[in-house]
Amino acid sequence: MNLLESNIRHLVRFTLNGAQVEGYAEPRLLLTDFLRHELGATGTHVGCEHGVCGACTILLDGRAVRSCLMLAVQVEGAAIETIEGLAQEDGGFSPLQQAFHENFALQCGYCTPGILMSMTEYLRDNPNPTKKEVRVALSGNLCRCTGYHEIVNAILDAAKALREEDGASS
């Protein structure tokens, strides 16, 4: 047990998309701001800053969470994944990104990183969702451009592509 004082910047270390990273944070610094301003990982977007819009969603130890509702000091030692880690090693789109591209599932793109990170966990746990289930799963991510139809279609397409990929590799 170690008390971190309010007015001092403390060392924080964790893995970001598989690479060890570190930086300094006051206890009150939000994880979103640490990722963006301290580490320069600006793919994670800041929307409402109270957990409603979902734009800042990242994966914490494999689970989708709001990075605006976490402090940087809370993720010491954790494994964080963000949009920057989603593409394939050769820089090509992941199946989920590809499906968004093909279905025109984004316009301004502000909500997209949060939706992709959310759906990364969702499709891993639910490889064959119905349209209705996808709509419920999407309720935690606000998009003001698309009307969601293309996003829902993209997620269903991505689920299909991932199932085929899974079937081919096993």
Partner: peptide
């Protein structure tokens, strides 16, 4: 919208909390 300043302690047990 950023939190005000506070000290932060991560506890490992009920007793510490």
């Amino acid at each position: 919208m950023k939190p005000p300043r506070f000290d932060y302690v991560r506890v490992e047990s009920i007793e510490q909390a």
